[in-house]
Design a binder for these strands. Structure first.
Lengths: 118, 118
DNA sequence: AAATAACTTAACCAATCAGCTAAGTTTCTG
DNA sequence: CAGAAACTTAGCTGATTGGTTAAGTTATTT
């Protein structure tokens, strides 16, 4: 059974560290929180941040390359929006790890209670 | 003994960008995934990573300063463990934002249906 | 007591990052 | 069509990051 080469899968694969790194900057984190209220243009998003536009648009580039946001240009205005799937994926990672973590603790507790009287 | 005001502690506390940044590196991300299986010593954690120990312990420093992990030294062995509260806090951020996001979409849908016949 | 194990500290280096200014492009407005 | 608005591209810079080696410290083993 021929399968998709892992080189391609790896590209498709949502790589969480890239998304965490994107969120790991005050400015980008604030942009994401803003966009959770709905889409906005570049200049609208930039307004609260005390920096020149080129610096700011680099941040948007990082967010977009990580997959956390999307953007489309209409006329001279670029509009940015949250990519909900990226958030669902990260959320899922936390849910999975929590489930794993909890079951580990349960096994531990089980083991401790079973060996209690030894 | 003068102490750090709680107002400042609260600001330091739970500063998500720092935690995201800590997770935004392959090595540190892998360490966290490993620690979700249970505590481990520094050299145990370092083994799978092809780098000298000083480089590796810097990563542990970043993780610990962010609050994602804790460590204690017994004899010459430092043992690292997950700090579950940090994970709960991040998880909570995602749950909160999702709730907010969903209610925004609901309001939007509501609005669209109410103005449907205009 | 000497050797080894498990880090730790210090000093350095290359690469990436976050910012800047200046100049360019495209699209709207008057 | 001239000018302004909304980015975009290019090139520079200082700070931070992720790595290195060499040498030190502290605890255990033999």
């Amino acid at each position: 059974m021929p399968s998709i080469p892992s080189s391609i899968l790896n590209l498709m694969d949502n790589y969480l560290p890239a998304q965490f790194q994107a969120l790991g900057d005050r400015t980008r984190f604030a942009v994401v929180e803003r966009l959770l209220n709905g889409p906005a243009s570049v200049s609208e998003l930039a307004k609260p941040h005390d920096m020149a536009l080129p610096a700011f648009t680099k941040h948007l580039g990082v967010l977009e390359r990580s997959g956390l946001i999307t953007s489309t240009k209409a006329g001279r205005v670029r509009t940015c929006a949250i990519n909900p799937k990226a958030f669902t994926d990260i959320e899922q990672w936390f849910l999975d790890r929590r489930a794993h973590w909890d079951s580990r603790l349960n096994r531990l507790a089980q083991h401790l209670s079973e060996t209690d009287g030894d």
